[in-house]
Amino acid sequence: MLRLEGVEAAYGLSRVLHGVTIEAREGEVVSLLGRNGAGKSTTLKAIVGLVEVTGGSISLGGRDITALPTHEISQLGIGWVPEDRRIFSDLTVEENLLVGAKGGTRWGASRVYEYFPKLGQLAGRRGGSLSGGEQQMLTVARTLMGNPRILLLDEPSEGLAPVVVQALGHQIAALKREGLTILLSEQNLKFAARLADRAYIIEKGEIRWEGAMARLLEDEAARRAFLTV
């Protein structure tokens, strides 16, 4: 469904991605693993048009989206959940959700509240006053409001308490059961292993390993080379 073909990207003069080729098929959860600064976030930003793509191509369902502006990429069904969450802290939870709404049918505020009951209780609270875990829920919920065909999750488990990470894992697993396609960027292999069908390992802006998640769990050499610090 989503396909990156030899994508190169740069921040100004410093090149960050050197020909990244990855694919996420319909209904699949794919994990993009790698250390800090390996290029995970940049890959996701390149997909949504927030980083200038200097080479290669990105397509969604066969349609080339490489040069489209960010809002059109979003409207085509790519839902990006940024690493630093980027909650609108002055807006209430309800208003945050409203910004993400695109008038589709699958997800609405009531459905989102059903999924994340905690958010329903916090509907009138300012986004900035939420805890880290609540903010993470809100940022996922906000993106779901736009009825994405594919969800790009950027290190959702980062900086959260273990019990919160576990709850988040259950929620993502539930989304997977609904058939949502997910591209999950992670450093936390344990977290990704529970959710992902396949995995890519990125290192210094290049894909160094790819294959089924189960295989990665057996391939200690690859894990040691690219993942452990």
């Binding site: 949504v48 927030l50 502006p69 960010t70 809002h71 979003s74 409207q75 990006w80 940024p82 980027r86 609108f88 802290s89 002055d90 807006l91 208003e95 945050n96 409203l98 910004v99 993400g100 709404a101 695109k102 906000r142 993106t143 736009g146």
Partner: peptide, 23 residues
Amino acid sequence: RWGILIRAATQDREMVAALGVDQ
């Protein structure tokens, strides 16, 4: 909604675009 979008964009217009709003 328009007003809420404006408040959101005042804070983080890139995020607003990423949520599908034409800046």
